[in-house]
Design a protein around this nucleic acid. Structure first.
Lengths: 118, 118
DNA sequence: TCCCTATTTCCAGAAATCTGGAAATAAGGA
DNA sequence: TCCTTATTTCCAGATTTCTGGAAATAGGGA
């Protein structure tokens, strides 16, 4: 991932409405959510939300498909993973003893232990 | 971690100069780097960099200590880990099959395999 | 065709951020 | 004390982002 792409993704997420919408979509999984439902759940106006979903889309964090009159938005897990990987990329080369991914890995392993593929 | 803190950290990182400085500090490890050295390596003016380091500090991503005439900046690995954990927090509850942390975990394990504590 | 719902696009005023010049502060050395 | 280096603080102009009103587009149903 390029620094430019990382900055686009980080600025897209650095906004209350967009971060809220994105996390909602992360929870929603592959089924996604229609724009109107996101607007209702995040308590935002249709036009403002639409602008924000466009920003998330351009940053590669979500994608969308039309279904009848609704447009369904879905989180893009791959680009989210790329962003996280970019942020921790050089962590190990410095001080392995305080390596963030290692600690994170342990926490996640514990948290996801009961789930099927985590 | 609160949404407010996450947004402060994300906006702090969503800037070329600050992201560059932060990644430099992540690489530098616990020894950190003096402000002047960061300015030289990121090719930025002293006053601009100072402002940017203050923003990273307020976001909790770096801390500093004085050493003679220099001020040494150090990355805060704990808050970085908190931010990453916040972003992937609800990932597993949606669709375990496409859970980002799991994939990340695998990649990191492979990348860090040779290091002592990763 | 007409109507209704869902969503987006256009636009402009308001607010926030970014940058760099200039001056101020801090510390060490002669 | 005076000088030099390291860094920060203050400030204002330039630029960007944010928001919401109004209108436009898209699809389904009577």
């Amino acid at each position: 991932m390029e620094q430019t792409d990382a900055i686009a993704a980080l600025s897209a997420l650095a906004h209350p409405g967009r971060l809220g919408a994105f996390r909602l979509l992360v929870k929603a999984g592959a089924a996604g959510l229609p724009a109107g439902e996101i607007a209702r759940l995040t308590d935002s106006r249709a036009n403002t939300l639409s602008t924000n979903l466009t920003i998330l889309t351009h940053a590669g964090l979500v994608s969308s498909r039309r279904e009848g009159r609704s447009i369904i938005y879905v989180a893009d897990y791959d680009s989210m993973r790329d962003l996280l990987a970019f942020l921790m990329e050089d962590c190990c080369s410095g001080e392995p003893a305080i390596c963030a991914p290692a600690a994170l890995l342990t926490e996640q392993a514990a948290a996801c232990g009961a789930k099927t593929s985590c």
